[in-house]
Design a protein around this nucleic acid. Sequence first.
DNA 1: TAGGCCATCTGGTCCT
DNA 2: AGGACCAGATGGCCTA
Length: 313
Amino acid sequence: MLTLPLDVQSSNQYNSPFRTSWPSQLVRSVKSEICEALDDTLKSRREDRERGEQEKTMEDREVDVLEKRGAHKKKLSQSRLDRIRLRRIEANARERNRMHGLNNALDSLRKVVPCYSKTQKLSKIETLRLAKNYIWALSEILSTGKRPELLMFVQTLCKGLSQPTTNLVAGCLQLNAHSLISEPSAESFSVYTAYHHHHHHHHEPEVVGSSSACRGRPLRPYGSLSDPNKVLYSSPSPDCSNSLDGGRLSPPISFNGVFSLKHEEPVDYWSCHYALRYCSISQGSTTDLSPYDIHLRGQVYQAHEELNKPLHD
DNA sequence: TAGGCCATCTGGTCCT
DNA sequence: AGGACCAGATGGCCTA
């Protein structure tokens, strides 16, 4: 198997300069070393092939084809090998760039889901899961026009997440993580953190119902959106819809419980939402609020002030 | 030290 | 032919 030069292998390290950009000098150096390594590899593969000890690779097959043609055997195969080598190097570079693009997109996603932190990044899979749950929760709010209780909202966010990520999300909201994961039933949430008792936030924009904001938009894939009454007690849970979690089904009670607002005490969703956002910002950059930050019903709120209120009252 | 997460290389497949 | 995409393999880093 090909063993890459040490400096190429080190590009795998998180703090490596290769991680963001490859200086051209380094690229040339690495390329030449890769070429040398590939030379050795291809040479040994040819030797192995002669001994019949190795399955033929693509390069081997191409070389075979060329060799069968006979003409300019040695020179042609060598130039062909050079081209093949170059193609492989370029393909690797493209693949790296492609993956970097994918990672950049994931970073963008991290910034718009709750609990963004530059220092403690969510893993890829957790980011996707949290984003899915977040979209689900927000869609449900739009479709029902009802405000979920904070704990329920966070529980929906944490559905299917790992324990550490659940702790992180809970920590963002100063909730007890145990309450998020140990109680599957909506009714059991009467024992509840003092958090939202302390943070009744009175700046409450009207919550969107089946307004123009969501009309005609396929917010969820189940066709139940058009009927909010149906949504309340028949919605599948977020986990039903995709293979990300291996098709595992979640207890329906969790989802329905989140948004049905069975509890006696009115809860301020906006505090929750702001709190989540506050948390995201306070752990990350305080300067780069994106248009995603608080942008509902065509209104952009003064983020900092609004975000700070719930947690500093 | 095991397991999770990650970046990279690699070869296969599909598409233009 | 060549690029995009994908999944498997591999090895490094980090943490419980």
